[in-house]
Amino acid sequence: MKPRRPVVEGYFEERADGSVVLVGGRCDACGAYFFPKRFSFCRNPGCGAPGLADVELSTRGVLWSFTDNRYAPPPPYPAAEPFEPYGVGAVTLEAEQMVVLGQLARGTDVSALRAGQLMELCAEDLYETDDAVFRVWKWRTA
């Protein structure tokens, strides 16, 4: 079996027990969250503290909006042949007071979704090469 790798380093982790978490940054001084972490400092202009701690974000949230993509995006999206349409959801995390985007889990019926419904994090294969299977976080209905 090919090894599993995240499609991008440092954004999320898959645990041995099958759980998935997004990893962001948290400012110890003002409490702000950042996803992705991107920089080593706080971007709150009223704070600007020099360090951010790694933090696991909430794995559940409520759906803010949603759509699907019915045509293959341009590179660098690793679109399969034939192209497989996918949903995209924007989910509000209550504790972090932020919205995080993700593809919707395969098989999600976009026409049955409603804003405000509970969603939870999961992970699925995005694409594979000869050497590895690349994984990405997704949202699914909870």
């Binding site: 003002c30 950042f34 709150n44 985007l101």
Partner: peptide, 15 residues
């Protein structure tokens, strides 16, 4: 508000 090209908004915690 989720603006392009970001995949997450700012957090409203702490400000």
């Amino acid at each position: 508000y989720l603006d392009m090209p970001d995949i997450a908004t700012d957090s409203a915690v702490g400000a």
